[in-house]
Write a protein that binds this DNA or RNA. Sequence first.
DNA 1: ATTATCTATAGATCTATAGATAATGC
DNA 2: ATTATCTATAGATCTATAGATAATGC
Lengths: 229, 229
Amino acid sequence: MKSPLPAAAPQPEPRGERRKRETRSRLLEAALRLMAEKGMGGVAINEITQAADVGFGSFYNHFESKEAIYAALLDWGFEEFGETLARLVRDVTDPAEVISVCVRHTLLRARREPSWGQFLVREGFSAKGLERGLGLRLLQDIETGVKTKRFPIDDLLMMCTSVGGTVLTAVSIELQFGSSPGTLPAGLKRRGFSVEGLPERAAATVLRTLGLGQAEAEAIARRRLPDLS
Amino acid sequence: MKSPLPAAAPQPEPRGERRKRETRSRLLEAALRLMAEKGMGGVAINEITQAADVGFGSFYNHFESKEAIYAALLDWGFEEFGETLARLVRDVTDPAEVISVCVRHTLLRARREPSWGQFLVREGFSAKGLERGLGLRLLQDIETGVKTKRFPIDDLLMMCTSVGGTVLTAVSIELQFGSSPGTLPAGLKRRGFSVEGLPERAAATVLRTLGLGQAEAEAIARRRLPDLS
DNA sequence: ATTATCTATAGATCTATAGATAATGC
DNA sequence: ATTATCTATAGATCTATAGATAATGC
């Protein structure tokens, strides 16, 4: 039921609303960074508003409480990412490649947005990890692969557990040591550890867990990565 | 330089010291439970003293601050468990069985002491997971297995990542659904998921990741579990 | 005129300490 | 007499709100 008149001006979003949205989004970003670092309980509301450069009282125009902004973060960070992944693999038909793409994109995003990654690691388990966003995607994709006999495995729950845990831990490793490989702790460095190419290595490892052979797993993990069309 | 006289009484620990130790240990246990649930930042010192049934001021006889008791928890919970595992596998020679025993005992302890398990899951990544307790044990044991050609793998870092992540995630699953399998979320139940025998299934999965065949992995995961000698 | 943000503040909560009380060991 | 715990409390911090200010849209 749109106006019959051709919209003369493209009816840009009222400025007030945009202003409000931007404040809200600044609060969310600041909260993500702080809560990823210190956990929900370790962050005070005034820290958030200061980091967001927003008046203290404005917080309550957007969120009822600390718990409320935390819940909003979970939605924002996880659901939205699940949808992004779904879009990315829309045209990928091989279940193994679907998994590989999801794993690699997760690690790449964690590298680009460390706070997001840290939040994912911190909340990935507790927040019913298997039921939302990334976890749900993995579960469904693994299931598809099992049904089509692509993954010859027999313990679906343990496979989801292993794949999910491997990805989260890989994110954690990437965040701790990825940005400055020089700072690998001595115990790890001495063993010749390197975090080079972690996304691909994680994808290959996960595919092996799902029953693929070494050579095929590595080949799939190296395929060109589809980006957001 | 002990007294030359044969100790008539076996010199029991002075009562005052024992009293002090007990208070300290009640504080630690209360803190473990509360911080496992809500994270360090979400717990107030008076909550801890109340849960421990200890006068508020006594807290400061034992710990300087919340950060201090938290650090003590990390030591207590992780280092000590690493030592327990070391004792358990002292007489086990097969690296694969060593891993299996460690994994199963970790899951069994999480079942017996849910707060410990929840704390492990919450802090397992951040607290330099690969450098202490459980993580360090796994790393060393995997390394041994690689050197002795027991584990035909080529990416040691990813194997540690995968094994560690699988164990932590399995603990998380056990805690969420283990005690009351009736409460599995619909999405999981419908798929025929069950958490029966999770310790053995986790051990088998981990051994497969390390390159063992399905049959052998399952056989090792079912061997009799050594207990504390 | 309306709407969003900002400043100021009352009241609640939390931390850290000082001094009192109770228990132990001589 | 010594040592550990407990009670009480000052001061700091945090939350939630009320009322003032600034910006938008008519």
